[in-house]
């Protein structure tokens, strides 16, 4: 099959076949990153605009590296340097970028639905790099890639996602993505942070953290945004780590071949103990590596470059 999508907005809108196609492409991209000269000319002459309304180091850098490895010209616009402060609307700003003949807009925005709004209004391809609490499809794809690599499959695995589910776009996209690929997703966290109706996106809710991680093949810890303490969502950070963190003790009750994941940035000692994050079971840095490859694949597929990696 070919890949016909103009935009990458969320995991709901990707079919299983499309996800497999992307993973297959990711595999090829990963090979490029392993070379000593990590660059191919595939997207030479293409312009990728990294349009970040929200601060981000990891995702932006990952996209930037991905674009450069494919020889695209990447330009970064951030909240402070773009026209946002001048009171221009998102659509107007994006239309200006489009008028400069950009090929792909990578959008990070604090509002759910921002990427789909641009996708509807623009001819240029839009890749959602995180929209509010809604979706983070490139993260979900790199997570799927990592699990496939490490476990050889996804179908039938138990994947536990632990922490602040309610405010996490990563959790939403992972629930949808992993479930689509046949996994059994279980979420757990403070009851204040489990959104109502989470079942509709494929997850079941565990009674507590221990139940969630028991028999799990993969444990994904989510970052706690510590400023949420002010909204009555939990008591103290101390208690959070004790009651809801992946502690050393809890980790000992997990399966022997379990893998530990985290979308980063890690709060060591809060949602995950340092011993766990650094253990041989941790694939946190593999996720980061796969992130570049997934984003290369998506840029390639959306920017419409001709894939000639075998011939160069």
């Amino acid at each position: 099959m070919g890949f016909k999508k103009k935009d990458i907005l969320d995991m709901e809108s990707l079919s299983v076949d499309e996800i497999k196609y992307i993973l297959n492409m990711t595999d090829k991209m990963k090979e490029i990153s392993g070379r000593s000269i990590k660059k191919v000319p595939t997207l030479r002459g293409k312009t990728v605009v990294l349009f970040f309304y929200e601060p981000s180091t990891r995702t932006r850098t990952s996209f930037d590296i991905a674009a450069k490895r494919l020889s695209a010209d990447s330009i970064s616009l951030s909240g402070s340097s773009s026209s946002i402060v001048k009171g221009e609307t998102l659509v107007d700003t994006a239309k200006n970028i489009e008028a400069m003949n950009a090929d792909v807009i990578v959008l990070r925005h604090s509002c759910a639905g921002a990427a789909s709004m641009l996708a509807q209004r623009l001819k240029v391809s839009v890749i959602n790099a995180g929209d509010g609490m809604h979706a983070h499809p490139t993260q979900a794809l790199l997570d799927i890639m990592t699990v496939v690599e490490k476990k050889g499959r996804i179908d039938g695995l138990k994947i536990a996602i632990i922490g602040d589910i309610a405010h996490s776009r990563v959790a939403r996209s992972d629930c949808v993505g992993f479930t689509k690929m046949g996994a059994n997703v279980v979420v757990a966290g403070p009851p204040t942070m489990i959104p109502r109706g989470i079942e509709v996106i494929g997850a079941s809710v565990a009674k507590n953290i221990d139940e969630a991680i028991k028999d799990a093949d993969v444990i994904m810890a989510l970052r706690l945004q510590t400023e949420r303490q002010g909204s009555f969502l939990f008591s103290t950070l101390r208690e959070y780590s004790k009651a809801f963190g992946i502690t050393k003790k809890r980790f000992e009750s997990a399966k022997e071949d379990v893998f530990i994941m985290h979308p980063g940035p890690v709060n060591r000692g809060l949602e995950i103990a340092p011993e766990v994050a650094d253990s041989l079971h941790s694939v946190i840095l593999d996720q980061v590596e796969n992130g570049v490859a997934v984003r290369m694949a998506l840029l390639l597929l959306t920017a419409g470059g001709v894939w000639n990696v075998d011939s160069d």
Partner: peptide, 18 residues
Amino acid sequence: KSGVMNEGEVATRLGLGG
């Protein structure tokens, strides 16, 4: 506060505050 639509499965799916 912080809600922009009905709290429930649609808000959860869309990632909007309920």
